[in-house]
């Protein structure tokens, strides 16, 4: 069973000619089949955790370890991490001019699967996955993220999640900027992947709204660069009612 183990992770970022510590000792274990929601106020370091796990060059790991099935993730390049089974659905996916969605998806699937998918089966697979996400087939011929609406970008991220079948999926604020219909479609996509039981999900969100569609097994409250409190789904209800004030005011409560 695939397991992502994050131990005492410290991360800094360079900003305004100064080094700032954003993550101050994160401990978290995500197993295949589990869904962990990470919630927290703006600036608490949730997205930094997501991008550090994916290997974004902006972040420097200054301490701790990240293991995927015992393998050192921090030693891997960004593409190696993806091929090892980590997937990051981004909050702000960038435009890639000149590269069509269909070409991108096939190149990516070839890299992650280690061989080119058989063309006929692949076309069918993509078509069906797009239908499930209510995506127009013409979408495949557009350039990656170019001129996509907010909802289209997120659907495109979840389309990749469905096609790449990672061991660990990190969803960075996938719910932000979505109206209720789009949120439902995107959540259904995530749930289809979860129901396979083969993915561990790290759902990063500011709002509890998405948790009505995607039921987490665990909820963690992030505050000031570490996990301040952990609990079950009921913790989300508490946050829904009380907000993050308890965490921001005290600057973190240990779990």
């Amino acid at each position: 069973m695939a397991t992502l183990e994050i131990h005492d992770l410290h991360v800094t970022v360079e900003a305004d000619n100064a080094t700032k510590e954003i993550l101050k000792g994160v401990d978290l274990t995500v197993k295949q089949g589990e869904t962990h929601a990470i919630m927290g106020p703006n600036g608490s370091g949730k997205s930094t955790l997501a991008y550090s796990l994916a290997g974004h060059p902006k972040y420097t790991i200054t301490g701790g370890s990240v293991l995927l099935d015992g393998e050192d993730v921090l030693e891997m390049s960004v593409d190696e991490r993806a091929r090892a089974g980590l997937f990051l659905a981004m909050q702000y996916p960038v435009e890639i001019p000149g590269v069509s969605v269909s070409n991108f998806l096939r190149t990516s699937a070839t890299a992650v699967r280690g061989e080119a998918p058989k063309l006929r089966l692949w076309v069918k697979e993509v078509k069906e996955a797009m239908q499930r996400l209510n995506m127009d087939p013409a979408f495949a011929e557009r350039n990656v993220n170019e001129g996509f609406s907010g909802g289209e970008k997120k659907r495109h991220e979840i389309l990749q999640l469905e096609l790449l079948k990672p061991k660990i999926a990190i969803l960075d604020e996938t719910d932000s900027g979505l109206d209720v219909d789009a949120l439902r479609i995107v959540s259904e996509g995530v749930n289809r992947v979860r129901e396979t039981g083969e993915v561990g999900t790290l759902l990063i969100t500011h709002y509890t709204r998405i948790l009505r569609y995607i039921k987490p097994d665990f909820v963690h409250v992030f505050s000031d660069g570490r996990i301040a409190e952990s609990g079950g789904a009921e913790l989300a209800d508490k946050l829904e009612n009380e907000g993050y004030e308890a965490y921001t005011a005290k600057g973190g409560v240990s779990a």
Partner: peptide
């Protein structure tokens, strides 16, 4: 980064 995060080498 986006392309590499999808497994595609640099």
């Amino acid at each position: 980064f986006y392309l590499m995060a999808r497994g595609i080498p640099a």
